[in-house]
């Protein structure tokens, strides 16, 4: 049994006095795509913020390739190979599309992802490269945000609600390209509101409910009833 690439063990997370995660555990094996689903407020984004270093955690609550990284500064975690595509994209308004991408790559980690390969993955971005990132449509911004995450050549890419606010055809287009990302050797964790999409794009699923894992299993093994029960807590 090989060690997980990313292991979360009994993670608690707090916003001040408010506890958002209660002893949450999950893991990601190398080369896998895993989904984290759940209703609003279940703790999905909080999980990502804890992994990425934006929220405090116990050192051994989060391990990357065996190394405890919980509570490390976010920029140090980024340097170790975890890239977060934030909810709402988080593109820098003062920077153009290309500058956003270049900033994503400023850690200069080795790997297949660079400006050229990002523009091949997302051709629309190539034409828009010098526009301010705010001038793009929602779908284009999402491509830019994912591209920016890839530019860091991470080991683990965390995608927070990439379908949010996008038309279904655009979402289908973006999800279609995720396969290429995993094929290049990046392990993926997807937070998604769109359950069907999440199940189709990943091998395993965790369903969160009020800060705890309510259901976990292989995507193809979970029934709609089981998911609904875990999702809504009935």
């Amino acid at each position: 049994m090989c060690e997980p690439l990313l292991a979360v063990r009994s993670l608690d997370a707090f916003y001040g006095d408010f506890q958002a995660l209660f002893g949450l555990s999950m893991e990601l094996m190398a080369g896998e795509a895993v989904a984290v689903i759940g209703a609003n407020g279940a703790g999905k984004s909080t999980l990502f913020k804890s992994i990425a270093g934006l929220l405090r955690a116990r050192p051994d609550a989060i391990r990357l390739a065996g190394e405890p990284i919980g509570g490390m500064a976010a920029h140090a975690i980024a340097a170790r190979g975890i890239a977060l595509v934030p909810e709402g994209r988080g593109l820098f308004p003062s920077l153009s599309v290309e500058e956003n991408l270049l900033l994503g790559g400023q850690l200069k980690r080795p790997g297949p992802w660079n400006l050229q390969s990002i523009y091949e993955l997302f051709p629309p971005l190539a034409e828009l490269r010098h526009l301010p990132s705010t001038a793009l449509s929602g779908g284009q911004q999402q491509m830019a945000a994912i591209g920016r995450g890839l530019m860091a050549n991470p080991k683990v890419l965390l995608c927070d609600e990439i379908s949010l606010g996008l038309a279904p055809i655009v979402v289908r287009d973006i999800y279609g390209r995720l396969g290429a990302i995993v094929a290049e050797g990046i392990s993926l964790v997807l937070v998604e509101q769109d359950v069907v999409r999440a199940l189709n794009a990943t091998q395993r699923v965790y369903c969160l409910q009020e800060g705890r894992v309510a259901l976990a299993g292989a995507a193809k093994d979970l029934t709609a009833e089981a998911i609904a029960a875990a999702y809504f807590g009935v």
Binding site: A73, H75, L102, G104, A152
Partner: peptide
């Protein structure tokens, strides 16, 4: 320059800038 990009990005959004590996 890359330094200027770092300045502008950090001014825009400190948290996301950190996600890119920038030490504020």
């Amino acid at each position: 320059t890359a330094l200027g990009r770092a300045f502008r990005a950090t001014a825009d959004n400190q948290a996301v800038a950190q996600l890119m590996g920038l030490d504020n």
